[in-house]
């Protein structure tokens, strides 16, 4: 297999805070197509990042990023925000955010806004049933 030079370098990382949000389109797709559908994953396994933060970790809109917290690691797709919110990433509520420890269901400041590290990823987005690997 041909290795590229970039693969020997660590991907740059950046510290951000994750805040989860409800998304009506994701809820709708979950009800219509099921939570194991491709459509549901596309709307759930997402992080909305500030363009400045995306530049720091050298990713573009649509690239995959790995997010690491004290409780878990997950790969999701980066989406460039239309607004400025440096240091904050927004993730839809659900398993991909929960595995990092972020959740609005336990209303503690620590779960409402979670400190994580985000960087470019070469891995695939895990399917919902793979997120926890119980």
């Amino acid at each position: 297999m041909k290795m590229e030079f970039g693969e020997f370098l660590a991907a740059p990382e950046c510290s951000i805070m994750i805040i989860t949000y409800p998304d009506i389109f994701r809820t709708e797709v979950g009800l219509k197509h099921g939570k194991f559908s491709r459509e549901y994953q596309e709307l759930s396994a997402v992080i909305v990042l500030d363009s400045g933060d995306m530049a720091k970790i050298e990713v573009n809109d649509g690239d995959l990023v790995e997010i690491k917290s004290e409780t878990g690691v997950v790969v999701v797709r980066a989406k460039e925000s239309e607004k400025e919110h440096q240091g904050i990433g927004y993730m839809p509520e659900g398993a991909w955010a929960n595995v990092l420890g972020a959740s609005p269901a336990t209303p503690l400041a620590s779960t409402l806004a979670l400190s994580v590290k985000v960087g470019r990823s070469r891995q695939e987005i895990p399917a919902i049933e793979e997120v926890y690997r119980r």
Partner: peptide
């Protein structure tokens, strides 16, 4: 209630019983 899709569900090892109209992540496990 789709527990595993609603809460950080690390370290939950108890037996799980789900009564739900729909297929959920929790029902799958």
């Amino acid at each position: 209630f789709d527990l595993m899709n609603s809460l950080p569900a690390h370290g939950i090892n108890g037996k799980m019983i789900v009564i739900d109209p729909s297929e959920t992540l929790t029902s799958r496990y």
